[in-house]
């Protein structure tokens, strides 16, 4: 990692100053982007905490009130969808999606940059495609009128995160491509330079 930074001619600290990361894209765009980031991370944290609360409540209900919460399982299912799809976009923003970078890492900078732009564009395309497919799928579920057996709410409600998550992820990758075209360094995401970093970036 040290060599990579030297090669790029910049230090990680300088580039990853939190204030700069908050809105690495300039102006109003950056503000909206950072707002979305905040919202995604809020949904993520809340989703996880609600899941813990819901599961504990079920245990307490069963032992203290002799009554299982019949909806616990469904609520957790809703939350896991929320966590996954709110998290996909957030992970894209943080450059945390899992990849096999061995060959990529061995390439010279110019090649890496070209490859990163290709990867970002293709990934963005796939995400937008899946966003479109998930809208189509939700349409089908909506038309069928299927409801959750315990909560009796329409099933499609719990899927609305899916297209949203795909769209936000696609957008992030698209912006990453733009960023890589505009800037000198190679970026894993709009806010993260390539290279593995042990410090978490907080938004």
């Amino acid at each position: 990692m040290e060599t990579k930074l030297a090669e790029n001619g910049t230090s990680l600290d300088e580039k990853q100053d939190p204030k700069r990361i908050c809105s690495s894209l300039l102006g109003i765009q950056g503000k909206i982007d950072s707002l979305i980031g905040r919202f995604e991370s809020f949904m993520l944290a809340t989703g996880v905490l609600l899941m813990a609360g819901n599961t504990v409540a079920n245990v307490i209900g069963r032992y203290i009130f002799q009554h299982s919460l019949f909806f616990t399982e469904e609520v957790n299912r809703i939350l896991i969808i929320l966590i996954t799809f709110a998290g996909v976009g957030y992970a894209a923003r943080q450059g945390r999606h899992i990849r096999m970078s061995a060959i990529y890492d061995a390439l010279p900078v110019r090649m890496r940059k070209f490859l990163m732009i290709t990867i970002s564009v293709v990934t963005a395309g796939m995400m937008f495609l899946l966003c479109y497919f998930s809208l189509a799928y939700i349409g089908k579920v909506m038309a069928s009128g299927r409801v959750l057996p315990a909560l009796q709410i329409p099933v499609w409600w719990i899927f609305v995160w899916v297209p949203l998550g795909f769209f936000m992820t696609g957008l992030q990758y698209l912006l990453t491509a733009v960023k890589n075209i505009l800037e000198k360094d190679v970026y894993l995401s709009t806010s993260v330079l390539e290279g593995y970093d042990d410090t978490e970036i907080e938004i």
Binding site: A45, V48, A86, V88, Y90, A91, R96
Partner: peptide, 21 residues
């Protein structure tokens, strides 16, 4: 701290679960 931990839990869950999906 707990908010940050929950967020990081969500992030790790998401990057693994999207691959499961």
């Amino acid at each position: 701290d707990i908010y940050a931990i929950a967020k990081s839990t969500g992030l790790i869950t998401a990057v693994v679960f999207i691959l499961v999906a």
